[in-house]
Design a binder for these strands. Structure first.
Lengths: 151, 151
DNA sequence: TTGCTCCTCACGTCACGTGAGGTGGC
DNA sequence: TTGCTCCTCACGTCACGTGAGGTGGC
């Protein structure tokens, strides 16, 4: 399915400037997330320049979503990402049977519980936002009425 | 319609402690909003103690909603509140005909435009949040499947 | 060599948190 | 007088913004 010519050895790694531009964030933010251990760029050039992969970018996207959309702080985001990373690790082990089945099952159940907890928070926020929008719509309708009556 | 006995002269003004507790915020935050001119408590005792009315509390609630739910900063919130206050003032003038009709109509139209702008931002956020929730739900479903298959 | 992008400090800012030290009414 | 709630500084913190001064490859 892949191209008949050889894949490039570097699967398009980006400098911090390009990475920040694509993500719509700042270079400073990327360095700060790294300082807190939330992301580590896939590589560095011998000169010390950070190189970001597509997976790195997606991870940062996730951080931004949790921050802007949900309002979590970076400490909370760290623990959410830890949970997701742990789940990924367990999935890898499902293939290379190194952990026993009960333990794996336990880990997945734990992750699931945390996911459901997160989903509940999102639902709550959704409900509040919908009420806010409905209220705005009602206000706008009243104002349109005022304008119509003034004719 | 009101009670036959005389209304109390003070319609339940609260100290900053009670006000903060009811709002689920901090005393410091209330003082900070006042410092920025976002709210001014209805009164002060001769001793200098702040007194908050029900209207004051609702205004603070609005500030918190715009902050937590929508993610606006306090400068943005100031301008949103200014718009809402201006609309309130125009409504008052609709009764005591002191401004001419064209000018009033202009002001309402301006307020309406800003309201619609705000509503669009809320809709965008709602869409993103819904997609986030759906994604979480899909992940949870996959995890439940994994657990079921393990039986 | 000149530009450009990157690097690491390090101080500034916003929205408060958290005492420090003091006043005021039951 | 003792508690309690309130007051005004003022320094600390989180999540970056914003230069300062320097390195490194086309």
């Amino acid at each position: 399915m892949t191209s008949p010519v050889a894949d490039p050895p570097q699967p398009t790694l980006l400098g911090i400037g390009e990475a920040a531009a694509r993500l719509g964030t700042s270079e400073r933010a990327l360095r700060y997330y790294q300082q807190l251990g939330l992301i580590t760029p896939s590589g560095r050039t011998p000169g010390g320049i950070r190189r970001y992969s597509e997976d790195d970018l997606e991870r940062v996207s996730r951080i931004r979503e949790l921050q802007e959309l949900l309002g979590f702080n970076l400490e909370e985001i760290r623990s959410i990402l830890e949970n997701e990373d742990r789940l990924q690790a367990v999935r890898a082990e499902y293939r290379s049977e190194t952990t026993d089945a009960n333990r794996r099952r336990e880990l997945v159940q734990e992750s699931l519980a945390l996911q459901i907890d997160l989903k509940d928070k999102v639902e709550t926020k959704l409900d509040r936002l919908q009420r806010f929008r409905d209220d705005l719509e009602a206000r706008a309708e009243r104002m349109r009425q005022v304008l119509a009556d003034a004719d």
